[in-house]
C-alpha cells in the first residue's frame, strides 16, 4: 500500500517534471526540471531495488552531464523569443518521434511483457547478494567481451572528441614551472656597485 503510494507520487512528479522540460520558456528552468526528472527516475529504480543503477544514473546524469548542460545554457544566454518560434516549426517532427517511441514502448511492455517476469533468476539472486556485487560478477564474467568493447568505444569517443576540439594555437604563452624553479638568479640580475655621485 505504502509502496504503491510512493510509486504513484514519484511517477506523477516524474511526468510533471518531464513535461516541464518542454513547456518552460526559460532554458535554465527546463534544465532544472530535467535534473528533477532524472532524480525521480532514479528513485523509481530504487523502488525496484536496483540501487546501483539508481545511484549511477544520478551520479552520471545529474552529477556530470547536467552540470555541463547548465553551464552551456548559462554561458550562451539563449534568447527566449527565438526559442519559442523555433519550437513551433519543429513541433510536427517532435510529435512524429514521440509517436515512434510510444509505439516501441507498447511493443515492449504489452506484447513482450511475458519475457520480463519478475521470477527470473537474476532478480532473485539480486535480492540475496546485493545489486552491486551481482552486476559486477555478471559484467566481468559472462559479459566481459561486450563490456570491454563498450569501454573501448567510449575511450575512442573521448580521444576523438579531444582531438576534434584541440586546436594548437601559435604564439601561446604558457608557464613552464620547472624552468621557473630552475632559474639562476645570477643570470637574471647583476648587482653593480655604484659610486656615490654628488
Amino acid at each position: 500500500m505504502i509502496k504503491e503510494l510512493i510509486f504513484y507520487s514519484f511517477s506523477s512528479v516524474l511526468i510533471c517534471s518531464s513535461l516541464a522540460v518542454v513547456l518552460f520558456r526559460n532554458p535554465v528552468y527546463s534544465a532544472v526540471s530535467l535534473i528533477l526528472s532524472f532524480i525521480t527516475s532514479g528513485f523509481l529504480w530504487l523502488l525496484l531495488e536496483a540501487e546501483f543503477l539508481a545511484i549511477v544514473l544520478i551520479l552520471v546524469y545529474v552529477g556530470a552531464v547536467m552540470v555541463l548542460f547548465l553551464f552551456v545554457i548559462m554561458m550562451l544566454n539563449i534568447n527566449k523569443e527565438t526559442e519559442k518560434s523555433s519550437f513551433n516549426s519543429v513541433a510536427p517532427f517532435a510529435v512524429f518521434i514521440g509517436l515512434i517511441i510510444v509505439a516501441e514502448l507498447i511493443t515492449i511492455i504489452w506484447i513482450n511483457s511475458s519475457q520480463f517476469s519478475t521470477s527470473s533468476t537474476v532478480i532473485q539472486q539480486s535480492s540475496q547478494m546485493g545489486n552491486t556485487l551481482l552486476l559486477g560478477t555478471e559484467l566481468f564474467t559472462n559479459y566481459i567481451l561486450d563490456f570491454e568493447i563498450a569501454g573501448f568505444i567510449l575511450l575512442l569517443a573521448i580521444i576523438v572528441a579531444i582531438s576534434l576540439t584541440l586546436r594548437p594555437r601559435k604564439n601561446l604563452k604558457t608557464q613552464v614551472a620547472s624552468e621557473q624553479i630552475n632559474v639562476d638568479p645570477k643570470k637574471r640580475m647583476k648587482l653593480v656597485d655604484l659610486k656615490e655621485t654628488k
Binding site: F52, I55, V56, I58, L59, N131, T132, L133
Partner: peptide, 12 residues
C-alpha cells in the same frame, strides 16, 4: 550496499 557511490553522487 552502494555507500561510496551514494557519497560520490551526493557530493557532486
Amino acid at each position: 550496499d552502494a555507500g561510496l557511490l551514494y557519497l560520490l553522487a551526493l557530493t557532486s
